[in-house]
């Protein structure tokens, strides 16, 4: 594979795996949300993310050109072959944990897609343009919940603050760039993740102020998801997600 193709394959896998893993996480709320309206709303978000994952993984398969389609990539790779950022594999926890994770991710996701929408690669820009409309709504919804819970009761405020403190060390990875990212940026295809830190911080800090929550301190940050080094949580998630497909390979509904 030419160097540019192999970088683009890696890049598509990262976005595909990130949206797939978060889609799988959020879908676990189906039937468990606090009220039926929220249940449907969360399921909608999960479906949006899985839909986006299909587009990215299909693109990855086409670039690789080795006969792997979206299903082969989703169901027949093990944890060390997954390229999602660590933040999205964090467990659902309570509702505040889920919404904090969603808010921190959605904000990054929105700015990423906004930039990729003008990518010089038409396949990338097409996926980004479709996805960014969905994610614009995700950002608003998760931000609303952060404000509601933060500026809510003592219990909801304490839970949301604890969730943010817990997840904050996983946000650093969102703004790291490696050779893959730099190669694609040089060709006008990718996204300069380091440059997203400022708009992301502005939006996140604005919402936290409105929610009367404290912005956690930047300290040591986890990283490694983008290159396949994951937390133990991913293994359990994949085992559940892949078990049916692996027990009957090639089966059709």
């Amino acid at each position: 594979m030419p160097a540019l193709d192999s970088a683009l394959f890696e890049f598509a896998l990262r976005l595909g795996d990130t949206t797939l893993v978060l889609g799988q996480r959020v879908s676990a709320w189906t039937g468990h949300a606090p009220i039926v309206e929220e249940d449907l709303a969360l399921t909608n978000v999960a479906l949006d993310l899985v839909g986006q994952a299909r587009l990215w993984l299909t693109l990855a398969g086409q670039i690789e050109n080795a006969g792997r389609d979206e299903d082969a990539l989703a169901y027949f790779r093990d944890a060390h072959e997954f390229r999602n950022v660590l933040l999205v594999e964090r467990p659902n926890g309570n509702f505040a944990d889920t919404m904090a994770r969603q808010f921190l991710f959605d904000t990054w996701h929105f700015y990423t897609l906004q930039r990729l929408a003008t990518s010089r690669d038409e396949r990338v820009s097409a996926i980004a343009q479709k996805s960014v409309r969905e994610v614009a709504y995700h950002v608003r919804r998760s931000g609303d919940w952060v404000v509601r819970l933060g500026d809510g009761t003592d219990v909801s405020r304490a839970r949301m603050q604890a969730a943010l403190d817990e997840l904050w060390p996983y946000t650093g990875e969102l703004f790291t760039s490696d050779d893959v990212d730099r190669e694609l940026v040089a060709h006008g295809i990718g996204c300069d993740f380091e440059a997203l830190r400022e708009p992301w911080s502005l939006h996140v800090e604005g919402i936290l102020r409105e929610a009367t929550l404290e912005r956690p301190q930047d300290g040591w940050m986890h990283a490694g998801g983008k290159t396949g080094r994951h937390t133990e949580q991913l293994g359990y998630l994949l085992a559940e997600m892949q078990s049916v497909r692996r027990s009957v390979p090639g089966e059709r509904w």
């Binding site: 039926v36 309206e37 929220e38 709303a41 709504y137 608003r140």
Partner: peptide
């Protein structure tokens, strides 16, 4: 109809429940 704590949430829930 649907349940929501305020108008903003009612609009968002309406979008999610009735315009899918």
């Amino acid at each position: 109809s649907l349940h929501a704590t305020d108008a903003t949430m009612a609009l968002q829930n309406a979008r999610d429940v009735y315009t899918r």
